[in-house]
């Protein structure tokens, strides 16, 4: 079974989600629930640190698609950092870099909220 894990941290006003493992149709609900909870609590400045993400399919990308509008409507954003090249490639193939801030590292992602 696919393994996926989220660890949550804060840096001032920003919530950092460190994601690990494989994000597919089986594990996508885990990320979905986490994002839902953050939106409910109005924690909408979110950085997803993908340095531990080994795999993503379109089901994983769909989670970002589903919640980004809600988050932006609350003056928040999801910024995505530190993706491995093969994971970034999937985002890139579907045109995500034009819609999302996808940056080299977490520090840069956090800075963009200032």
């Amino acid at each position: 079974m696919s393994k996926f894990e989220i660890r949550k941290r804060s840096k001032s006003e920003v919530t950092i989600l460190d994601i690990y493992g494989e994000l597919d149709a089986h594990t996508a609900p885990t990320l979905e629930n986490e994002l839902k909870q953050l939106i409910e609590k109005n924690f909408v400045h979110i950085v997803v640190n993908g340095s531990g993400l080994e795999y993503i399919s379109s089901a994983g990308l769909g989670v970002f698609m589903a919640y980004i509008e809600d988050i932006r409507s609350q003056d928040g954003d999801i910024k995505i950092a530190s993706l491995k090249p093969k994971v970034f490639n999937v985002f890139d193939l579907l045109g995500f870099p034009t819609l999302y801030d996808i940056v080299e590292n977490e520090e840069e992602a956090v800075t963009r909220f200032k």
């Binding site: 379109s58 990308l61 769909g62 698609m65 589903a66």
Partner: peptide, 23 residues
Amino acid sequence: PTPEEQLSRKKRSGYGILLIRKL
């Protein structure tokens, strides 16, 4: 689907086939 369309319709499907066609 274009990502813009998907965002505005809050839909999250349709990308799998696109990836298959591209890859």
